[in-house]
Amino acid sequence: MSGGLADLHRRYGAGPLHLAILLVCFIVAAYALTRVILAGILVGFVLWFIGAVILHDLVAFPLYSRADAALQRRRWPVNHLRVPAGLSALLLVVWFPLVLRAAEHNYREATGLSTAPFFGRWLLVTLALFAGSALLYVLRRATGARRTGRKR
């Protein structure tokens, strides 16, 4: 028995639980895919599924890490900028159909209201984030800045 296990380890590269759980995973996924086919949405589903990986790993990630790197090239209190900028960008990325009014037609049909106020709200939150961060920076400088402020 242990000889068989060792053999599996040598040929497969991991233990039987590893193999079993991955097989279960692929069986469930394959069954889900048959449901997707029956629902008649295969092409769109697969495109969006693969697209989701590409969108995150090869578009969103390089974009935000490059933006962050650019921010660090300057001599300024980088965290007091990257935190509000990052949070503001997050809110925009999540709520862009409302903020940029992309969903205006459906939204008006459903709610009877316009998406117009959302841009101002996002801007307000963004300003509050930057203002709060700036205030924190000033307070830290004023109180001796023994923590993060001075170690650039």
Binding site: A32, L33, R35, V36, A39, I41, V43, G44, F45, L47, W48, W95, P97, L98, A102, A103, N106, Y107, A110
Partner: peptide
């Protein structure tokens, strides 16, 4: 957000 840009019905896609 009622932004139905995906080329499928939401219900089956989100369930499967």
């Amino acid at each position: 957000q009622l932004f139905y840009v995906f080329p499928f019905s939401f219900y089956p896609a989100h369930l499967y």
